[in-house]
Protein backbone atom coordinates (compact mmCIF):
# COMPACT_ATOMS: atom_id res chain seq x y z
CA UNK A 1 0.00 0.00 0.00
CA UNK A 2 1.22 3.48 -0.84
CA UNK A 3 1.61 6.15 1.75
CA UNK A 4 -0.10 9.27 0.43
CA UNK A 5 0.11 11.51 3.45
CA UNK A 6 3.10 11.93 5.73
CA UNK A 7 3.36 14.11 8.80
CA UNK A 8 6.70 14.27 10.55
CA UNK A 9 7.06 16.13 13.85
CA UNK A 10 4.46 18.64 12.75
CA UNK A 11 3.74 21.38 15.23
CA UNK A 12 1.22 24.16 14.95
CA UNK A 13 -0.11 27.03 16.98
CA UNK A 14 -1.29 30.56 16.68
CA UNK A 15 1.40 31.84 19.10
CA UNK A 16 4.87 30.45 19.75
CA UNK A 17 4.13 30.02 23.47
CA UNK A 18 0.82 28.29 23.04
CA UNK A 19 1.32 25.39 20.69
CA UNK A 20 -1.78 23.41 19.79
CA UNK A 21 0.02 20.50 18.20
CA UNK A 22 3.53 19.33 19.00
CA UNK A 23 5.58 16.77 17.11
CA UNK A 24 2.68 15.00 15.46
CA UNK A 25 3.83 12.18 13.23
CA UNK A 26 1.38 10.18 11.16
CA UNK A 27 1.36 8.18 7.95
CA UNK A 28 -1.82 7.51 6.02
CA UNK A 29 -1.98 4.94 3.25
CA UNK A 30 -4.11 5.06 0.15
CA UNK A 31 -7.74 4.04 0.67
CA UNK A 32 -7.59 4.09 4.46
CA UNK A 33 -10.23 5.59 6.73
CA UNK A 34 -8.52 7.04 9.80
CA UNK A 35 -10.51 8.35 12.73
CA UNK A 36 -8.86 11.07 14.80
CA UNK A 37 -10.17 10.85 18.33
CA UNK A 38 -9.43 12.99 21.35
CA UNK A 39 -10.83 15.46 23.86
CA UNK A 40 -12.41 18.61 22.46
CA UNK A 41 -10.07 21.52 21.91
CA UNK A 42 -7.06 19.23 21.57
CA UNK A 43 -6.18 20.34 18.05
CA UNK A 44 -7.86 17.72 15.88
CA UNK A 45 -9.51 20.38 13.73
CA UNK A 46 -6.24 22.29 13.46
CA UNK A 47 -4.65 19.11 12.16
CA UNK A 48 -7.26 18.87 9.38
CA UNK A 49 -6.79 22.54 8.48
CA UNK A 50 -3.03 21.89 8.16
CA UNK A 51 -3.55 18.88 5.92
CA UNK A 52 -6.10 20.80 3.85
CA UNK A 53 -3.56 23.57 3.30
CA UNK A 54 -5.64 26.21 5.07
CA UNK A 55 -2.94 26.71 7.75
CA UNK A 56 0.83 26.43 7.64
CA UNK A 57 2.62 24.29 10.20
CA UNK A 58 4.94 26.06 12.62
CA UNK A 59 7.46 23.25 12.30
CA UNK A 60 8.02 19.76 10.90
CA UNK A 61 7.21 18.44 7.45
CA UNK A 62 3.80 17.80 5.94
CA UNK A 63 3.75 16.04 2.60
CA UNK A 64 0.92 14.90 0.41
CA UNK A 65 2.00 12.52 -2.36
CA UNK A 66 5.61 13.49 -1.71
CA UNK A 67 4.95 17.18 -2.23
CA UNK A 68 4.84 19.67 0.63
CA UNK A 69 1.33 21.01 1.31
CA UNK A 70 1.36 24.75 0.60
CA UNK A 71 -2.19 25.76 -0.22
CA UNK A 72 -5.67 24.24 -0.54
CA UNK A 73 -6.63 22.42 -3.72
CA UNK A 74 -9.46 20.20 -4.90
CA UNK A 75 -7.61 16.94 -4.23
CA UNK A 76 -8.07 17.45 -0.49
CA UNK A 77 -11.60 18.50 0.42
CA UNK A 78 -12.74 19.50 3.91
CA UNK A 79 -16.27 19.01 5.24
CA UNK A 80 -16.90 20.76 8.54
CA UNK A 81 -19.32 20.28 11.40
CA UNK A 82 -21.10 23.55 10.83
CA UNK A 83 -23.49 23.46 7.94
CA UNK A 84 -21.44 24.08 4.83
CA UNK A 85 -24.21 24.19 2.26
CA UNK A 86 -24.51 27.59 0.62
CA UNK A 87 -27.92 28.94 1.67
CA UNK A 88 -28.23 30.98 -1.52
CA UNK A 89 -27.97 28.01 -3.86
CA UNK A 90 -30.52 25.28 -4.45
CA UNK A 91 -29.63 21.74 -3.45
CA UNK A 92 -28.75 20.94 -7.06
CA UNK A 93 -26.63 24.09 -7.51
CA UNK A 94 -24.83 23.43 -4.21
CA UNK A 95 -23.42 20.27 -5.75
CA UNK A 96 -23.19 21.49 -9.35
CA UNK A 97 -21.27 24.74 -8.83
CA UNK A 98 -18.10 23.07 -7.44
CA UNK A 99 -18.20 20.68 -10.41
CA UNK A 100 -18.29 23.61 -12.83
CA UNK A 101 -15.28 25.03 -10.98
CA UNK A 102 -13.51 21.78 -11.78
CA UNK A 103 -14.12 22.47 -15.45
CA UNK A 104 -17.28 20.46 -16.16
CA UNK A 105 -19.83 21.92 -18.53
CA UNK A 106 -22.98 23.29 -16.97
CA UNK A 107 -25.05 20.43 -18.38
CA UNK A 108 -22.74 17.67 -17.17
CA UNK A 109 -22.30 19.30 -13.78
CA UNK A 110 -26.06 19.35 -13.21
CA UNK A 111 -26.46 15.79 -14.40
CA UNK A 112 -23.66 14.58 -12.17
CA UNK A 113 -24.97 16.60 -9.23
CA UNK A 114 -28.45 15.09 -9.61
CA UNK A 115 -26.95 11.61 -9.64
CA UNK A 116 -24.98 12.19 -6.41
CA UNK A 117 -27.96 13.77 -4.72
CA UNK A 118 -30.13 10.81 -5.52
CA UNK A 119 -27.37 8.58 -4.14
CA UNK A 120 -27.79 10.30 -0.76
CA UNK A 121 -31.59 10.07 -1.01
CA UNK A 122 -32.34 13.66 -1.99
CA UNK A 123 -33.63 13.09 -5.53
CA UNK A 124 -36.87 14.87 -4.64
CA UNK A 125 -35.24 18.01 -3.22
CA UNK A 126 -33.15 19.28 -6.12
CA UNK A 127 -34.83 22.66 -6.52
CA UNK A 128 -35.13 23.43 -2.82
CA UNK A 129 -33.01 25.92 -0.84
CA UNK A 130 -31.11 24.60 2.22
CA UNK A 131 -33.29 26.61 4.63
CA UNK A 132 -36.16 24.28 3.75
CA UNK A 133 -34.15 21.12 4.52
CA UNK A 134 -33.61 19.49 7.91
CA UNK A 135 -30.14 19.44 9.48
CA UNK A 136 -29.61 15.81 8.49
CA UNK A 137 -30.66 16.51 4.91
CA UNK A 138 -28.28 19.47 4.71
CA UNK A 139 -25.39 17.31 5.85
CA UNK A 140 -26.35 14.76 3.21
CA UNK A 141 -26.10 17.57 0.64
CA UNK A 142 -22.62 18.20 2.07
CA UNK A 143 -21.74 14.52 1.64
CA UNK A 144 -22.98 14.56 -1.98
CA UNK A 145 -20.99 17.75 -2.58
CA UNK A 146 -17.66 16.35 -1.41
CA UNK A 147 -18.06 12.93 -3.03
CA UNK A 148 -19.06 14.50 -6.36
CA UNK A 149 -15.73 16.32 -6.44
CA UNK A 150 -13.92 12.95 -6.28
CA UNK A 151 -11.19 14.22 -3.97
CA UNK A 152 -8.28 11.88 -3.30
CA UNK A 153 -8.31 12.77 0.37
CA UNK A 154 -11.47 13.55 2.30
CA UNK A 155 -11.11 15.57 5.49
CA UNK A 156 -14.19 15.32 7.69
CA UNK A 157 -14.27 17.54 10.78
CA UNK A 158 -17.00 16.05 12.96
CA UNK A 159 -19.21 16.30 9.92
CA UNK A 160 -22.26 14.92 11.64
CA UNK A 161 -21.52 16.14 15.16
CA UNK A 162 -24.36 18.64 15.23
CA UNK A 163 -26.98 15.99 14.44
CA UNK A 164 -28.99 13.98 16.90
CA UNK A 165 -27.88 10.40 17.48
CA UNK A 166 -30.49 8.79 15.25
CA UNK A 167 -30.02 11.13 12.27
CA UNK A 168 -26.30 10.78 12.73
CA UNK A 169 -26.41 7.00 12.33
CA UNK A 170 -28.45 7.31 9.17
CA UNK A 171 -26.08 9.89 7.67
CA UNK A 172 -23.14 7.70 8.70
CA UNK A 173 -24.70 4.80 6.83
CA UNK A 174 -25.25 6.99 3.75
CA UNK A 175 -21.61 8.00 3.99
CA UNK A 176 -20.35 4.42 4.32
CA UNK A 177 -22.42 3.25 1.34
CA UNK A 178 -20.87 5.92 -0.85
CA UNK A 179 -17.44 5.23 0.60
CA UNK A 180 -17.70 1.52 -0.26
CA UNK A 181 -18.21 2.41 -3.90
CA UNK A 182 -15.51 5.06 -4.07
CA UNK A 183 -12.95 4.08 -1.41
CA UNK A 184 -11.28 7.44 -1.05
CA UNK A 185 -8.74 7.99 1.66
CA UNK A 186 -10.50 9.67 4.57
CA UNK A 187 -9.48 11.39 7.78
CA UNK A 188 -12.42 11.83 10.09
CA UNK A 189 -12.29 13.83 13.31
CA UNK A 190 -14.87 12.64 15.80
CA UNK A 191 -15.90 12.98 19.42
CA UNK A 192 -17.78 9.74 19.30
CA UNK A 193 -16.04 6.43 19.82
CA UNK A 194 -19.05 4.68 18.32
CA UNK A 195 -18.75 6.71 15.17
CA UNK A 196 -15.01 6.09 15.01
CA UNK A 197 -15.48 2.32 15.39
CA UNK A 198 -18.25 2.33 12.81
CA UNK A 199 -16.47 4.35 10.12
CA UNK A 200 -12.77 3.78 10.47
CA UNK A 201 -10.12 1.18 9.70
CA UNK A 202 -7.80 2.79 12.16
CA UNK A 203 -8.18 4.86 15.28
CA UNK A 204 -5.56 7.52 16.04
CA UNK A 205 -5.84 9.02 19.52
CA UNK A 206 -4.58 12.52 20.18
CA UNK A 207 -4.01 13.81 23.69
CA UNK A 208 -2.00 16.07 25.95
CA UNK A 209 -1.34 19.78 25.76
CA UNK A 210 0.01 20.54 23.22
CA UNK A 211 -1.45 17.47 21.55
CA UNK A 212 0.49 14.59 20.08
CA UNK A 213 -0.38 11.10 18.91
CA UNK A 214 -0.80 8.96 22.03
CA UNK A 215 -2.28 5.86 20.47
CA UNK A 216 -2.82 4.19 17.11
CA UNK A 217 -5.13 1.18 16.92
CA UNK A 218 -6.45 -0.95 14.09
CA UNK A 219 -10.23 -1.28 14.18
CA UNK A 220 -11.90 -4.67 13.70
CA UNK A 221 -12.26 -6.00 10.22
CA UNK A 222 -14.38 -6.80 8.34
CA UNK A 223 -16.06 -3.43 8.47
CA UNK A 224 -19.43 -3.48 10.27
CA UNK A 225 -22.49 -3.01 8.10
CA UNK A 226 -24.67 -1.73 10.94
CA UNK A 227 -23.94 0.36 13.99
CA UNK A 228 -25.09 -2.49 16.23
CA UNK A 229 -22.19 -4.61 14.99
CA UNK A 230 -19.67 -2.23 16.54
CA UNK A 231 -20.59 -3.71 19.92
CA UNK A 232 -18.41 -6.77 20.05
CA UNK A 233 -16.07 -7.96 22.86
CA UNK A 234 -13.05 -6.87 20.77
CA UNK A 235 -14.50 -3.41 20.13
CA UNK A 236 -15.40 -3.05 23.81
CA UNK A 237 -11.88 -3.84 24.94
CA UNK A 238 -10.63 -1.24 22.43
CA UNK A 239 -13.07 1.27 23.93
CA UNK A 240 -11.77 0.61 27.41
CA UNK A 241 -8.17 0.88 26.26
CA UNK A 242 -8.73 4.22 24.50
CA UNK A 243 -10.59 5.75 27.43
CA UNK A 244 -7.86 4.65 29.89
CA UNK A 245 -5.24 6.09 27.57
CA UNK A 246 -6.96 9.47 27.44
CA UNK A 247 -7.49 9.52 31.20
CA UNK A 248 -3.75 9.01 31.64
CA UNK A 249 -2.69 11.88 29.38
CA UNK A 250 -4.97 14.51 30.74
Amino acid sequence: MNTILTLENVSAGYEAQKMVLAEVSLKVTDGEVVALFGPSGCGKSTLLLLIGGFLSPAGGTLEYRDEPVIQPDDQRILLTQTDSTWPWKTTLENVAYPLRCQGQTSRNARKDAARWLSAVGLADSLGIYPAELSGGMRQRVGVAKVFALRPQLLLLDEPFGALDEFTRHSVNEVFLNLWRENRMTTLVVTHSLNEALFLADRLVVLGGKPARVVGDFPVQSPRPAKVEETFSPEADSLRVEVLRLLAGTR
Binding site: G52, G53, F54, P72, D73, D74, R76, I77, L78, T80, T82, D83, S84, W86, K89, Y97, P98, C101, Q102, K145
Partner: peptide, 20 residues
Protein backbone atom coordinates in the same frame (compact mmCIF):
# COMPACT_ATOMS: atom_id res chain seq x y z
CA UNK B 1 -15.52 30.18 7.21
CA UNK B 2 -17.33 26.88 6.74
CA UNK B 3 -18.81 28.28 3.53
CA UNK B 4 -15.42 29.36 2.28
CA UNK B 5 -13.16 26.32 2.77
CA UNK B 6 -14.58 24.68 -0.31
CA UNK B 7 -14.30 27.90 -2.31
CA UNK B 8 -10.61 28.10 -1.41
CA UNK B 9 -10.02 24.46 -2.33
CA UNK B 10 -11.73 24.90 -5.70
CA UNK B 11 -9.62 27.95 -6.56
CA UNK B 12 -12.38 29.41 -8.71
CA UNK B 13 -11.62 32.66 -10.57
CA UNK B 14 -12.49 36.00 -9.00
CA UNK B 15 -15.51 36.62 -11.24
CA UNK B 16 -16.90 33.16 -10.65
CA UNK B 17 -16.50 33.67 -6.90
CA UNK B 18 -18.08 37.09 -7.17
CA UNK B 19 -21.23 35.80 -8.86
CA UNK B 20 -21.54 32.53 -7.01
Amino acid sequence: KAHLYLVRSLRAGYWSQLWN
